[in-house]
Write a protein that binds this DNA or RNA. Sequence first.
DNA 1: CTCATGACCAGATTTCTTATCCGGTCACGA
DNA 2: TCGTGACCGGATAAGAAATCTGGTCATGAG
Lengths: 233, 233
Amino acid sequence: MPGQHERGERILDAAADLVLRWGYKRVTIEEVAKQAGIGKGTVYLHFRNRSELFLSVLVRESVLLTGEMLDELRQDPIMMLPAEQAQLVYLGVMRRPLLRAMFSRNIEILGDLALDPAMQPLRRVKIDLFGDLFQVLREHELVRTDQSIEAQRHVMSAVQTGFYLAGPMLGPYNTHDDEATAALLAHTVREALHAPGPPDRAVLEALQPKVLAMLTDFHNALAATVHGSSPED
Amino acid sequence: MPGQHERGERILDAAADLVLRWGYKRVTIEEVAKQAGIGKGTVYLHFRNRSELFLSVLVRESVLLTGEMLDELRQDPIMMLPAEQAQLVYLGVMRRPLLRAMFSRNIEILGDLALDPAMQPLRRVKIDLFGDLFQVLREHELVRTDQSIEAQRHVMSAVQTGFYLAGPMLGPYNTHDDEATAALLAHTVREALHAPGPPDRAVLEALQPKVLAMLTDFHNALAATVHGSSPED
DNA sequence: CTCATGACCAGATTTCTTATCCGGTCACGA
DNA sequence: TCGTGACCGGATAAGAAATCTGGTCATGAG
């Protein structure tokens, strides 16, 4: 049996590769199977159907990114702050062509995959994460307390959305590379949401385990939805 | 001859009404002419072609909005500040169904009209306006001076884009009405771009004529591109 | 003479029909 | 037990025919 990692992963590799080369719409299950060196039916031993397969590709990328976030957070608790997180996520997304296509609504590559109903629960998990995170940060006055959590979530969503979409839209007027844009995004989030003044390192460090646990839960919840070992029951 | 205002305006009225009811794609020139109570060929005495007609509808709305901005700015020079402007524009756009459809990329109603190449020069005028505006504000330290003008323009675009698009995208999680969202947008822009501390009223008032002139130029430039009196040469 | 008009044309769009493809299943065989 | 590819039907694409509509312009009203 060729390849080092297990079959489910190889299917995901093949699917990811083909989507980037041909676009979601044009990739057939048979072609994915061929590229993975297996029979067509075998794909269905791992994924219930077509969209679950491709969604898994996206989720696997997200899991990788979340893993990176965890590492960074372990190294420095400053990464629990919204601005730093937004910056890191932005750079991580831009580094991954599939996520970049998803976040910048590249309809050419991902088609209507991003609108798939199966995406809904993932969004929910993410929104819950942010709700919880803001709650904790607020309790320790790391973010402003003069806005509601809903307002902060709204600002966070809007600003992030804007930075992902505005780059392409500005066209030739966009003179910023990814690093510079990420820094701008961080600045905007920081000024809009963080409590004034520098954060208290002691508080940050005290909170680190709790936030780490929350992010780990999120990471695991995501990972649990990547099939590829066995089709979900 | 029925109707009070002149024929070009009546054509624009008819077009605006039909676009909102049927969507840009479905509206035919003949139908617009019928609704305006004139013959089909007459439309072409006012507009060179289909897209110029519908673009003019959009531009006319923008001229109205810019007029409101001018009034507000005359009443209170605080309105020259980016946050206040963004807030006012947001509310103005949300109040006008056609502009709302354009800014929130409602593809159902406006189709690919927003992508029309004829839109380009308008964007350019608007971007130039913002460049000039930030330049003036910066010279009088009403906005931060530790960022480049390009960076500030980028932040402004991104944040605005985000707030226009994030509302629909948040779906049921969006608990804010237009007023609250506009306030949130203003807050975000203010914190990200304004100089710290309250603005100096004296400086604001001293600058009022200059900014008023800039906005008036913009207003006139926009108005000049609304045809409807005679097809452009 | 000026200006509005609607019949007219070509190209674009839609509709209807036929052909091909592909997601998903499952009987078979390794 | 597990992997496979032939097979099925619905979906999608391709093609042909019919309809529609943006834009023009000869005509006639004022």
